[in-house]
C-alpha cells in the first residue's frame, strides 16, 4: 500500500515536473528562437560533417560516384601507418611545434614585461600599436613579403632580398635560403614570431594590470630595483597565466599554422614542411583521394583530442581553471 502511495506521489511529482518543464519551455520560447540560427549552424556545419568520417573506411575518390566506392575497412589507416611519410609528418609536425614552443612562447611574456616597464603612457601606446599591427595583416601578405625578403638574386650582379643580402654579408658567402629545405623551419618560426608575438602580449599585459600596486610600493620601500620588482613581483603574479597558456599550447601540439605552411610550401622544402594538416590537404584537395585524406584527418583529430584532454587535466592538476 505504501508502495502505491509513493508511486502515486512520484507520478504526481512527475506530472508537476512535466508542467514545470512546459512552463519553462513556454517562458523561454523567444530564447529558443534566438538560439535557432546558432544551433542550426552547429548542426549543419559541425555535426553533419561527422557523418562524412565514414568515407575514411571507403575507397573513395573525387568524382567517382559514391556508391561505386568500395568499403575497405581500416585499409586507409593501415596504409597511412605503414607509409614512410608517416614518420616524416610526425617529425616535421613535432619540430615545427616544439620550435614554436621553445623559441616563440616566451617572447610575448618578455615583451609584455618590458612594455610594462614603459611608464610614459603615450609612448607605450605607440609601441603597442606598432607591435600589434602584424597580427592584422593576412598570411598571404606575410608570406609574400617573406618571399621578397629572402629571394635569391635573379642573376649575377643583381641583389637578393634584404635578408639574403644581410646573411650573405654576415657569413661572407652567397646564401640561398629558398634553395635550402630545412631552412623552412626557421622561416616558419620567424614569421610566427613577427606576426603574433606582439599580439600575444595582450593577455599577459592584462594579467600584469591585475597585479596589486601595494606590492610594488612595499618593494620600493624595501629598496628593490626595477629589475628586482619585475623578477620578484610581476613575474610570480602572472605565473598562473603563463602556466595556463603553456598547457593549452601543449594541447594543440599537432596544430601547426596550416595556411602559413601551405603558402610557403614548395617542392624544395616539401620534405621538411609537410605536416599532418598539409598532408590531408594534399591528398584530399589536390590528389582527390577523399577516403585516405579523411582517414589521416581523423587520426589527427583523435590524437589532438587526447592531447587536449591531457593538457586540460594537467591544467587542473596545477590548480588552473582549464578549458572545460
Amino acid at each position: 500500500m505504501a508502495k502505491t502511495q509513493t508511486a502515486a506521489v512520484s507520478a504526481q511529482e512527475k506530472q508537476a515536473a512535466k508542467e514545470k518543464t512546459w512552463i519553462k519551455l513556454k517562458r523561454d520560447k523567444w530564447m529558443y528562437l534566438l538560439l535557432l540560427p546558432g544551433v542550426l549552424y552547429f548542426i549543419i556545419f559541425k555535426i553533419v560533417p561527422l557523418w562524412g568520417i565514414l568515407i575514411s573506411f571507403k575507397d573513395y575518390f573525387a568524382g567517382v560516384p559514391f556508391l561505386k566506392a568500395n568499403w575497405i575497412g581500416f585499409d586507409n589507416f593501415i596504409d597511412f601507418f605503414t607509409d614512410i611519410s608517416f614518420w616524416q609528418l610526425l617529425r616535421n609536425t613535432l619540430i615545427i611545434s616544439f620550435m614554436n614552443l621553445i623559441f616563440f612562447f616566451p617572447l610575448p611574456i618578455i615583451l609584455a614585461l618590458l612594455l610594462n616597464e614603459i611608464r610614459v603612457q603615450w609612448y607605450k601606446k605607440v609601441l603597442q600599436t606598432f607591435v600589434y599591427v602584424p597580427h592584422f595583416v593576412s598570411m598571404v601578405v606575410v608570406t609574400s613579403i617573406t618571399f621578397m625578403l629572402i629571394k635569391t638574386p635573379a642573376m649575377e650582379g643583381a641583389a637578393g632580398g634584404m635578408i639574403t643580402e644581410l646573411l650573405s654579408k654576415l657569413t661572407g658567402h652567397d646564401v640561398n635560403i629558398l634553395g635550402n629545405g630545412p631552412a623552412i623551419y626557421w622561416i616558419l618560426l620567424i614569421q610566427a614570431i613577427w606576426k603574433e608575438c606582439g599580439w600575444g602580449t595582450v593577455i599577459f599585459l592584462a594579467a600584469i594590470a591585475g597585479v596589486d600596486m601595494e606590492q610594488y610600493e612595499a618593494a620600493i620601500v624595501d629598496g628593490a630595483s626595477r629589475f628586482q620588482q619585475l623578477i620578484y613581483i610581476t613575474l610570480p603574479a602572472i605565473l598562473g597565466t603563463i602556466v595556463t597558456m603553456f598547457i593549452l599550447r601543449m594541447g594543440s601540439v599537432l596544430n601547426t599554422g596550416f595556411e602559413q605552411i601551405i603558402l610557403m610550401q614548395n617542392d624544395i622544402n616539401r620534405e621538411y614542411s609537410e605536416t599532418f594538416d598539409t598532408y590531408v590537404y594534399q591528398y584530399g584537395r589536390v590528389e582527390g583521394n577523399y577516403g585516405y585524406s579523411t582517414a589521416v584527418g581523423l587520426f589527427k583529430s583523435i590524437v589532438s583530442l587526447l592531447c587536449i584532454q591531457l593538457s586540460n587535466r594537467g591544467a587542473k592538476a596545477v590548480g588552473q581553471a582549464g578549458l572545460f
Binding site: F42, F45, K46, P49, L50, I53, V280, G297
Partner: peptide
Amino acid sequence: MVLFTMVFGGGMIPTFLVV
C-alpha cells in the same frame, strides 16, 4: 555540442562535401 565540435571535427573533405 559546441565544446565537442571545438575539439573534434569532421575534417576538410567531409565539410567540403556538406558545403
